[in-house]
Amino acid sequence: MFLQQVINGFASGGIYTLVALGLTLVYGVLKILHIAHAGIYALGAYLALIAYRIYPNIYFAFAFAMVGTAIGGYLVQKYLYWPILDKPRIVPLIASIGLFLALEELYRLIWGPYVIPFPQKFHWKSYNLGHIRLPGSDLFVFALSLFFLFILYWIVNRTKVGLAMRAVSDDKEVAEASGIDSKWIIALSFIIGSALAGAAGLMVGVYYNSIYPTMGDVPAYKSLAIIVVGGMGSIEGTVIAGFGLGLLEALLIGYLPFAFPRDALAFIAMIIFLLIKPEGLFSR
């Protein structure tokens, strides 16, 4: 029972982390809250749907969703954020919320207000560890999240472009004076963050077998809470807060003797942090 809850927590934690990392990357380089990111996440789920209708293969669906959301993220930064970057910071925030709502309405117009099941049923095997049953769907989501996190870690810490990303997020002008084209690095942060959100959207579509226009709502709020708890702009903080939230949710639901509103936990954590440690786990 305990281990089952843990692996379930890791699975949802992985999803939270992948989505929230996009916010972290964008906040790092642009210092704006990219609320519309959750709309990109929902786009990933719908794109996976399209991909499956074209060619029913999970790898193809991943590629299609991730490339599509990457392009989406790129367009958002180019046509929404760039033109208003020198305005007060409340302006891009409001624009971002506006775009998020517009995207949800757009999905409603195109695909209808229904909950659409994922076109392929996956028959998950369960793995038995002694007398514990580990559901294959949880393992699938958890393993894939780790895989994407590892790729991100490798890019950010082991490549030249990753060094440039960290530099731009630390001090844009010093980075530019060192010969870095910060405009391209910012675009790249959107591309990478959005592709991760696209992957997360697909995984959630598969995991819960349901895709609907407002599926980004709860992740939008939760990833905000996660980046506050983790420390704005901190990748390590986001990973720890994301997995921590997933784990805590699963354990509290499993063990509390009364019904607990799962989605409230993120905000309780955020409020506690804002009161006692407003800079988050990893302040920069």
């Binding site: 960290r166 630390d170 001090d171 010093v174 530019e176 004076a177 060192s178 010969g179 084209d181």
Partner: peptide
């Protein structure tokens, strides 16, 4: 743009020892 000027051979050491604080010296 600044990065293009950097490639041409202009460089600036910023005021107050401004460097990338979160990176290591070698980075």
């Amino acid at each position: 743009k600044a990065h293009e000027r950097a490639s041409l051979g202009i460089s600036l050491s910023f005021e107050g020892g401004r460097i990338l604080r979160t990176l290591t010296v070698e980075e």
